[in-house]
């Protein structure tokens, strides 16, 4: 039996923009570790010669012709926005790039 896997819960939480309490961090560390261990089990399967796939069904080329249709009105589009101005969503000023 391998050592229990751990993951950097703090890092993952930060990426997901989730605030965790110390207790939660401890709890999720254990739970996520269990999940990672399950993947170790999967890794043990011999997949030599099997092509990687992203889907369970061998479907491809699912598309529409390029025909446009009307969308939301600005009012509808903004109906979930916590704050709006000039028909746009107001967000905190974040200049990243």
């Amino acid at each position: 039996m391998k050592e229990p896997q751990t993951m950097d819960v703090e890092y993952a939480a930060n990426l997901a923009r989730i605030d965790l309490t110390v207790e939660e961090k401890k709890k999720f560390n254990g739970q996520l570790g269990d999940i990672l261990q399950y993947f170790e089990k999967l890794k043990a399967v011999d997949v030599e010669g099997v092509e990687p796939m992203a889907h369970a069904f061998p479907r491809h080329n699912v598309w529409d012709e390029d025909e446009s249709r009307a969308g939301f009105s600005a009012e509808e589009a903004l109906s979930n926005a916590p704050a709006k101005r000039k028909d746009q969503v107001v967000v905190p000023k974040v200049i990243e790039e």
């Binding site: 529409d64 390029d66 025909e67 446009s68 249709r69 009307a70 969308g71 939301f72 009105s73 600005a74 589009a77 903004l78 000039k86 028909d87 746009q88 969503v89």
Partner: peptide, 15 residues
């Protein structure tokens, strides 16, 4: 399939 474009009133090319 909502329309793509430029210069339309804000947030109207949405779905």
């Amino acid at each position: 399939r909502v329309a793509r474009g430029f210069g339309e009133p804000p947030n109207t090319l949405t779905d």
